[in-house]
């Protein structure tokens, strides 16, 4: 995006100048105010207001089409015949894949789906020059997966309460860990912590001892 600077007595005037230059309304421009300027006193020491303006990036609908095409292209090159549907959901883009071979595209523990989502987000973020939140789903895997994680979290929660011993879960990505933390958040008898380094950390479920202090209170 290339910014040009415009001046005016006031910021409004500077923006107007910018609009005249591009022959576009202010809504289609990305405008940053550099300095508001000052009117000065009796025409002395006055400073012009400065703004920087550039053409606003392609509208969101194009981004949606772009995201769909990118994913379709990748899938086609993987030898996959699939249909992709794109839509906006809150502030993110959701791409749903319809394919005969869902299992392959999901991969072990959703790895392949995760990889596709990561790469397509990266590509689209690069094209639109800002961070785009993008979710790729296939046969409502996301919903089923988070339901399964919640069930697993609750099951281990019960186990921890019964035995009074902490349980360490398998390494998970940040999104999955969040689901686990949220599932057990409301339980005052349990406490969850993430352990480890990097992207994949383990969630540890601890029992909260009632009267005496928990041994590893230092960890909280």
């Amino acid at each position: 995006m290339e910014f040009l600077e415009f001046e005016g007595k006031t910021t409004e005037e500077a923006i107007e100048n910018a609009c005249d230059h591009f022959h576009l309304p202010a809504e289609s421009l990305e405008i940053e105010i550099v300095s508001v300027g000052s009117p000065g006193l009796f025409g002395l020491g006055s400073k012009p207001a400065k703004v920087r303006a550039a053409l606003r990036e392609a509208p969101e609908t194009d981004l949606l089409a772009e995201a769909r095409e990118t994913l379709e292209n990748i899938l086609a090159k993987m030898g996959e015949t699939a249909r992709v549907e794109a839509r906006h959901e809150d502030d993110r883009i959701t791409l749903s894949i319809e394919s005969a071979d869902a299992g392959l595209l999901i991969g072990k523990q959703g790895q392949t789906l995760e990889a596709l989502q990561y790469l397509v987000s990266k590509i689209i973020s690069k094209k639109s020059r800002r961070k785009v939140r993008l979710v790729i789903d296939i046969e409502s895997y996301r919903a089923r997966h988070s339901e399964a994680l919640t069930q697993m979290a609750l099951k281990y929660g019960e186990k921890v309460k019964k035995t009074g011993k902490p349980v360490t879960l398998n390494p998970m990505n940040p999104h999955d860990r969040r689901i686990v933390h949220l599932a057990l958040q409301g339980d005052s008898e349990l406490k969850t912590l993430s352990r480890g380094e990097g992207l994949y950390k383990k969630v540890v479920v601890y029992p909260v001892k009632k009267k005496e202090e928990p041994e590893d209170a230092g960890l909280t």
Partner: peptide, 17 residues
């Protein structure tokens, strides 16, 4: 992470053939 994602997709595509 990007390299790993590309490898994951590549191996999924290879499994197919």
């Amino acid at each position: 992470r990007t390299a790993r994602a590309m490898r994951t997709i590549l191996s999924a595509a290879s499994t197919k053939i």
